[in-house]
Design a protein around this nucleic acid. Structure first.
Lengths: 196, 196, 196, 196
DNA sequence: AATGAATGAGACTTCATTCAT
DNA sequence: AATGAATGAAGTCTCATTCAT
């Protein structure tokens, strides 16, 4: 896990803020420097260039996402693991809406090879972990077996992402946690093996 | 439904092609003109500006989406309506991958008020129609009642969108129809009232 | 005196209208064609190009200005000639504010040799005639002798032009004729030989 | 009074030079940058845009004009005040022909609200001050009373402006000071109360 | 650690004009 | 007499980045 200097953290923070609040179009070196109260040139003291800033944003969120996945292991039941992961994420979103970048990243970032690689890695890490948990649940009878793990992955992650997307589109105006709880209730009904 | 001249259709087509294949960053008037084999100035004979081209792309897809929603009414059962809508869309995607723009549009387009308005309208049209179908299904006992219609909407549309997103990220390399069929099977299981 | 076709007259009229109402910046072939309800290409059926239109505007006003100067000769007294000339012009302005172009022309038109030549000619014609009238008046004792004719020319024409300029700047909002009458009263006091 | 950096002053100077010598049509960012020996982009480090440069030109001249008006107060007699103002201006014009911009500004600058506002302010400042001086002169019997102050303003300022306009049209070829002296002699005769 | 000054590349757009029909 | 389609040249402006200080 990379260590950031104080200034670097500051830059990353404001970069996220701009992307989330003003859109990628307004994420320019000029605007970033302005918000930070420093010169554009100064940015290059701390990062090689703009894409390195984006890359760092991804790493920053990747770390958090990885932590969440790791922490999930303290739970025994698969469904509880999943609930922890998505609940934690929803809470992260509320605490720091900048987190939405993680979801948008695939779509909005410039086609730089380094970035693309990093994004694919994050997605893969996520997919692997979630699917593994689902698979375990299916094996031990916790999770329904009549839908394969990849489809369930699409359904769970897809609905979660879509909820987040809409939340952002509505300018973070609705109570995300409340909507999440309803969504998760539904998702549990979907996942659980029907008891006989 | 707006009528396009031959040239306008051509421009829209190539614009979509560029956005999908090369990303929004490469969707420049210069590139577009180059691909069309005309001068940049010529573009302005056919459209007021770049955003008007984007707007037209949206209208173009909106028309198709609306048609699909309308055609779905020939089915009696709610679930069949939904299956028709999403199946048709999946087929549209295969036939014309440019369709993904409809899904990306919320995130990638420049923050022009006219565009934002149009995008929100399309999303709303979609949400209204789908939720209405779900609601009808719930009323007549076809669709489960223990998850509210909005949550089901998130789940169905979210998984579908996520599947498309991944398909694009993988450069359209997997068989979308096959994956869709699996997904839809799962979604039907989710939606249907469990028979006693 | 050149003869204009009906269409040419129409084009000249609208050109003047645009220049006066919307400024030279908005006097484009596109805008002109739009206002006329014809295509840009059609303009080139009637005029060689934009500068030929401007040139024609100048000729159009030159004809009127020349007429006024000629008609002034029916008066015997120099001061009456002058009064007629400027009064007629003021009335022309009120009737057709497009006339202001004649005053602006030196400053605003593009540096085309043909245009510059034409403008200088109009100005010269005016200067020659007015100064001649002043000179005659000085000879026959009507007009004061202690200020040379060129200086008087500056004073009379300069004040008149300045009045027009301000009238336009105020969007033709004040009563030009009324202000003119006051101005002319003052100018007559300036011009007239003080009676002993 | 705004302070300019060295570069800003340089830019303003060259901008004036171009407008006066080559006309507004040739006052392009490209041409300006070329003359300065810097890139177009560099201009935008020093000014927000082209109109901000124009605006600065106006401010620059406004300061000078205001100074002249202020300095005029050291004279006791109204006519001496006026003579000082116009003589100083004539001298300014000779020293820096770019000054003509102040006179042309109403007509030639693009219809930007900020610019229009600034121009109107300058004109108003001028009118208010000159008319005030004329009024004072009328009150204390120095200046004739039988022509109202506004008409006298038209006459004095109008002739002066017209002289300048012609001077420019003749490419600054005649001796402005000499012509001005003759003009002023005439204007004094106009203004002064005839002694009995 | 930071900055002021600069820049090449390229963005979108408008202009007057031409030409085949 | 008119038009639809096109265009080269030029316009203003923004971008990420570099470099001397």
């Amino acid at each position: 896990m990379r260590q950031w200097t104080k200034r670097q953290k500051e830059i990353i923070e404001f970069a996220i803020k701009i992307i989330v609040e003003e859109g990628l179009d307004n994420f320019t070196t000029k605007n970033l420097a302005l918000k930070l109260g420093i010169s554009e040139a100064a940015l290059y003291r701390h990062f090689d260039g703009k894409n390195e800033i984006i890359s760092s944003i991804l790493e920053y969120f990747e770390d958090i996402a990885r932590d969440t996945l790791r922490l999930a292991n303290k739970f025994n039941k698969s469904i509880e693991k999943l609930r922890f992961i998505f609940k934690t994420r929803a809470e992260n979103f509320v605490r720091n809406p900048g987190f939405v970048i993680l979801i948008l990243s695939e779509e909005i970032f410039p086609p730089d090879p380094m970035l693309t690689e990093k994004i694919k890695n994050i997605m893969l890490m996520n997919k692997d972990n979630i699917e593994k948990i689902i698979q375990d649940g299916q094996k031990n009878g916790e999770i329904r077996n009549d839908i394969d793990k990849e489809t369930l992955f699409y359904m769970v992650v897809g609905s979660f992402r879509f909820m987040i997307t809409r939340w952002r589109l509505m300018n973070f105006s609705f109570d995300l946690i409340q909507i999440f709880n309803k969504l998760w209730e539904g998702l549990e009904k979907l996942l659980k093996k029907e008891e006989v």
